[in-house]
Design a binder for these strands. Structure first.
Lengths: 352, 352
DNA sequence: TTGAAAGCGTTACCAA
DNA sequence: TTGGTAACGCTTTCAA
């Protein structure tokens, strides 16, 4: 910048102003500066600018697992949205670990991010971290996993609604012995469980002991976890005829367990997962699932954060729930009713 | 920092030194400073530090699609590796677009990243961008896709080897009419094609006109592309009995096309893809694939970049090819030979 | 062992 | 419309 200024016999202030599109600059001066800057391919040092403006134009993003498609999609949506506002993403993975998540947040703050988007694995006990963030006056938005007892901006899905929709769907298709394979102790898993329980109760259906199986990991080991949980369910006297699974991986494990015992899906046991992951429509038995709309979560979270950053003031936390979508495939296809069978029979007779 | 210094009646310099573990500091002073810093939860402003030291401790990462599992995995590996060196990831998605990629690189440079890792969609014609990077004295490493004619650090797989291994495998299992569905004009796609061609030639097998079909997109639309390409191949007089597909998505499209015509995989047509994506082992027909080892690509690239950053000097570009792995599943399972059938027959007779 | 002064590249403020 | 000066929060250098 100094160089440009010297060459053109203007001050650095003038150059700075031109670069920021400041109004009171002579049109001729502006031209000269612009041209030279263009030629040199000069770009202002954003770190230096940030030091004086207090704006780094970086947003910190913390996810539990970047290689997880769901979080990758959220990050992609966040990146796309904030880029249009002139921001970039400083991203960190907590690898599902408490300490690493805290350390990541601290590091991003040290890098002077203007805001944070966090898919947290923390609990209410860790609220200290969020106090720290607030002390830095950095707005933040929680995505996917909410932290009970923390008043913070949140964008995610209504997990209870997921539980309700999935369970309702299974009941609608005629199942009565509906079991649930739940995930670990996160708001996500607890919400889905609640939706399941409430829906069962509303329909006057009992949930026999053992009908809520649990897998300890919702990630890599979830397939194995789902497999084992399903085996336990199938070993019960009162075998379930449908299972709402915490996510698609669990459902895939469950599917394998069922098929490996020579039973059929959905004839013997119907199955539904959550996430609507890529490829689940291509499984041996195409899997019904509930789409969580990761792109919309990321987009809304970014929009909200940008608004908070640009506001300065601190209004009461927003809570945004994006709609989910039930995707019915073979694993929970609506069975053909007797009436329909009759109709087919009549049709056959008629055409014969 | 000023506050800490004033409170303790020492200078900011002293505090700064303590924080960086500088040697010549009185043990008692160090204690006092450390304690107070701890209490306040103070962390130095990395942007300000960077302004002085010329090191931002940020690495820029540019990928074509963050939501793509392959790049997510690379990014995860990069993040994990550089974190241990005290670096963070400033990440940008080019969304497979030339202009956006260039703009992203420029922006990351403006943010003063210490190094760049780029999965590029650019061609030799865009070498100007890389000159720019070099002018900034920022080391960079290309991953996955190399740019012909550009002498740069590169970490990726040997795409020609992929083509060779896949084709060789199909030939080994007895196929002679081996076709290829190739991808768009990238180094990746071209390398795989070359491997295919050379291997066919080495075995004295001809590649009839039309045996190399092409899909224009390797991403979202690849399934549809693979489907159509496969339909064309199946409509030929001399129908292929095996197809090496550019990637798993293409292979899935091809699989659908085959099954939808009532043909079987691998009995009528054997299939192999590339990427070994999650879930491909769970398809109607479990898909053979070649694993590209994204984690290792990311890890090696990050290691290389860190070394270059810490070196200062600029040695000649490194070129690292990580090993790939053939994963044989049902879609190209080794067929049972007549001899083996006889053996089974004899066995039966013996046991009878 | 400690600290005063200078400076990193930029913008804010105010005067010319 | 233009620019001088101070300041952002830190590190480097060098003198005490």
């Amino acid at each position: 910048m100094k160089d440009v200024a010297k060459e053109l016999n203007v001050s650095v202030v003038t150059v700075s102003k031109v670069l920021r599109g400041h109004s009171d600059i002579g049109p001729e001066t502006r031209e000269r500066v612009l041209r030279r800057v263009q030629e040199l391919g000069y770009r202002p040092n954003l770190a230096a600018r940030g030091l004086v403006t207090g704006r780094s134009h970086m947003v910190g993003v913390v996810v539990p697992e970047l290689k997880h498609a769901f979080f990758g999609e959220i990050a992609a949506a966040v990146g796309s949205r904030i880029r249009r506002g002139g921001y970039r993403m400083l991203i960190a993975s907590s690898e599902e670990g408490r300490d690493l998540e805290i350390e990541s947040i601290e590091a991003l703050l040290a890098h002077q991010v203007d805001g944070l988007i966090i898919a947290s694995t923390l609990t209410e006990a860790d609220r200290g971290v969020f106090r720290r963030i607030e002390k830095h006056n950095v707005p933040y938005v929680l995505v996917d996993r909410d932290i009970p007892g923390l008043k913070a901006n949140f964008v995610g899905v209504d997990d209870e609604a997921i539980g309700t929709i999935a369970t309702e769907h299974l009941i609608q298709r005629g199942n009565r012995r509906v079991a649930h394979i739940r995930g670990p102790e996160t708001s996500t898993s607890i919400g889905r469980l609640r939706g399941y329980m409430n829906t069962m109760a509303r329909h006057g259906l009992t949930v026999p002991g053992g009908y809520v199986a649990k897998v300890e990991h919702s990630d890599v080991e979830a397939v194995a976890g789902g497999f084992q949980a399903m085996q336990r369910l199938l070993a019960m006297d009162l075998r379930p005829d449908a299972v709402f699974c915490h996510n698609d991986l669990v459902a895939i494990g469950a599917l394998r367990a069922i098929l490996s015992l020579g039973m059929r899906v959905p004839a013997d046991v119907a199955l539904i997962g959550v996430a609507n992951s890529r490829y689940v429509d291509l499984l041996t038995v195409p899997l019904s699932s509930i789409d969580q709309n990761a792109t919309q979560i990321g987009d809304r979270a970014a929009k909200l954060l940008l608004r908070r950053i640009e506001m300065g003031s601190k209004p009461r936390p927003a809570r945004i729930l994006v709609p989910v979508k039930l995707i019915v495939r073979d694993s929970s296809a609506i069975p053909i009713t007797e009436e329909q069978l009759h109709e087919v029979g009549e049709l056959r007779e008629a055409t014969a």
